[in-house]
Design a protein around this nucleic acid. Structure first.
Lengths: 121, 121
DNA sequence: CTTTTTGATTGCGAAGTGCAACTAAACCCG
DNA sequence: CGGGTTTAGTTGCACTTCGCAATCAAAAAG
């Protein structure tokens, strides 16, 4: 049985676009995974290696949740059966605009923030 | 002793503008309170009355946190000593751009979302 | 077969959430 | 004054989620 996560489905708190967006990705990790996907990261280990040091169980549960929400697809690697490739669906790519908006806001308003090396694409 | 909250000050997970923004307001409630403040709500009861039905303890702790972060100021009402006025600081008003960006994204990408009545200002 | 790599799951203490009940100060009304 | 009401919270408690370390299973490498 798949672990559930607050808001991972289901009844919205309201129809406010802000509340609904927060219900989808208003936690500390989901958008960082999306960021990594936008930067071209594809594998579990690659996400783990990011600066913010997400725990394996949290990463696993967020990837599942993003998959449940239709933002991410998971597929095995043909050449190496251990490896899994995560990538953004068409719908997941729409999150890019949101992520970039937040990044822009942070860069402008939070001192000492900077994009990760290789942060352009 | 004031209750602490994850990330409510202090060491950043990284210098990524996305991660830092999420450290500030990456939870389910803070930005909804900011939204209400932008809409002109000022009092505890008014925040409680919002559609999303925040619990009193959570509202109290988020308001304190936003105050700690310098986004909100709390002041008593001269005419009625029970009443407290919350409002955005200059710094808190900068969150407006972020909130509007998220609202725009939600309106465009999430079906059936709509701004609250009186949502223009 | 043994070791290593990869993508996880499990266990556990700590922290956060949500609900209901309660409180305290200030105001209102007779 | 004195009881009730309004406002802004706090407290208690069960439950969920987080974060860390340890462990695991399947596949690949040696």
């Amino acid at each position: 049985m798949r672990r559930r996560y607050r808001g991972a489905g289901r009844q919205r708190r309201s129809n406010c676009p802000i509340a609904c967006t927060l219900d989808l990705v208003g936690d500390r990790w989901s958008l960082l995974i999306v960021r990594d996907l936008l930067l071209g990261k594809r594998r579990f280990d690659e996400f783990l290696a990011s600066e913010e040091r997400i725990a394996t169980n949290i990463l696993s549960s967020r990837l599942k949740r993003l998959e449940d929400l239709g933002f991410v697809v998971r597929k095995g690697d043909d050449r190496d059966g251990r490896r899994v490739q995560y990538s953004l669906t068409r719908s997941g790519k729409l999150l890019g605009k949101l992520v970039r908006g937040i990044a822009d806001w942070g860069l402008k308003n939070l001192p000492q923030t900077r994009l990760a090396p290789g942060g352009e694409q």
